[in-house]
Amino acid sequence: MIAAGCDIGSLTAKAVIIRDGSIVSKKIIRVKETALKSAETVMSMVTSEAGLKMEDIDSCCTTGYGRYDIPFSDMNKSQISCHGLGAFWLDRSIRTIIDIGGQDCKAVAVGENGMVKDFIMNEKCAAGTGRSLEILAKTIGIELEELGPVSLKSKKEVELANKCSIFMELDVIQHLYNKTKIRDIANAINTAVARRVVQLSKAVRLENDICITGGVSKNIGVVNKLEEMLKIKFKQLPEDPQLMGAMGAAVFAAKIN
């Protein structure tokens, strides 16, 4: 059976194809102007990489903010369930998933079947999401990808408001005026975002077998801070953690959980 999972997020679109229980191809792209276009593009890339055509797909599940009204989708599932199931499918011991995406952040607890037992998701506020990291990185004049590595060089703790991304930005600007070193501000940004995530994730009972997914999982600064604050060590997933939404969707489509 050939099953596809397609995750159309706010910043990136991801797709995964599973054939008879094995991953055959995967792709991550920046989103296009519409959800449909993003879905079509990423799916066409992932199918061609696997040497397949769209017609070869037996079942397709979509997830992410653009999951609705995709003509080739057979079902849609919330990204919360998909992230949970995707991570669980790759490592059956996983019970908690912290997912930090472009516009939301969630903590998901899954049961012994990989399905959602409990979850918490941030409210509209952007503090603690990929979007706020992007804005703050821009404010201090570095690329989003650099935020993690730069912050690791920090030698001095500086304080940053973490209640709201607007307050955070104001404080960052204040630090720039005061000529605080960029590496220290970068560290403070990662700390502030991590603190928000910790606050949120405490609402779900965290278990030891925990992993991190979503775009922000690639920011080593935030990941280190989270491990330090939560006093845990994230389990390493065998696949790119940003792909977990699409992975879970593919598992749903394949009905192999």
């Binding site: 079947n113 959602v116 998701m121």
Partner: peptide
């Protein structure tokens, strides 16, 4: 968008 996700995930959780 966010509301739909929450509600859908919640329903998936309840059914599970």
């Amino acid at each position: 968008g966010q509301i739909k996700t929450r509600v859908q995930a919640f329903f998936e959780q309840v059914r599970n």
